[in-house]
Amino acid sequence: MASSPASGSRLWETDPILTVEHLFMRFGGLVAVNDLSFNVGRGDITALIGPNGAGKTTVFNCITGFYKPSAGRLALAHRRAATPAEIDAATAIGERSLATGDAAVYLLERLPDYRVSGEAKVARTFQNIRLFTGMTVLENLMVAQHNALMRASGYSLRGLFGLPSWGRAARAATEKATFWLDKVGLLERADDPAGDLPYGAQRRLEIARAMCSDPILLCLDEPAAGLNPRESLELNTLLRSIRADHGTSILLIEHDMSVVMEISDHVVVLDYGTKISDGTPEAVKSDPRVIAAYLGVDEDAVEEAGAEIEEIVQTGAAS
């Protein structure tokens, strides 16, 4: 699962890992997501941006199974991109997933939330951090390996009697947790309660926890929110390394444009639940519709904003 850095090649068109087609989400009379279609490229860092209330988190909740979409298809392809024919076949037979030799298609809209993570291997973090605050940092990472450990413990029977195979699995799980703790710089705090960590560390721990469930697609809901510039920079490094070393594709919601413009390969812009722009960061930031959506349609403001974004991007790149 080697990833190719997305220089110039538009992976979301040639090798999509997730295909969102005609997604609708209604709450009563409110249409939060309106006919949204986009692709997420395999090995890409894709950013989903948009003004407040644009429906970004709702899209996330649909992808990760917490909301059932009102309509639409969310096809996740394991190993290689699924052909439209394969996706249609999976849709037609009414199954939740379809494995065809070298690939597998999961129709996320049909999976309950825990199976989106457990089987389709889509992990997520939350806008308002959801750690197990009363458990230690290490325990948080052990819980993330629940399904694998459950099988290793013989659904508790082997573990209850302390068989050696369980001991090996438990040690391996601890090692994996240690690896990720080291990676996010929390090894020293492994035995502290997660709730005692400072905010930035909690954000990193949540990412480490999501990674412990071995995802192929990692969905991050505003990972840079509340971070100071230094932490923001560390986050960029972490996300790049996750993509490069583990081949995990990343989909993130972010308001911090310096993060978005610097690390993403592909940007999708939402406004009022509809897609208004989709392309490389360079293409998106000069799209007048995006500027208008962020700052209203006043001509002067649009120009000003364009300059401002330019400036942010340059400082972001320089730092």
């Binding site: 917490f66 939330d113 825990y114 993570s117 939350f126 959801r130 819980v143 399904n147 469930s213």
Partner: peptide, 11 residues
């Protein structure tokens, strides 16, 4: 501690 987080981890 948190049921939603559990579900997000495949439990």
């Amino acid at each position: 501690e948190d049921e939603i987080a559990c579900r997000s981890l495949g439990i």
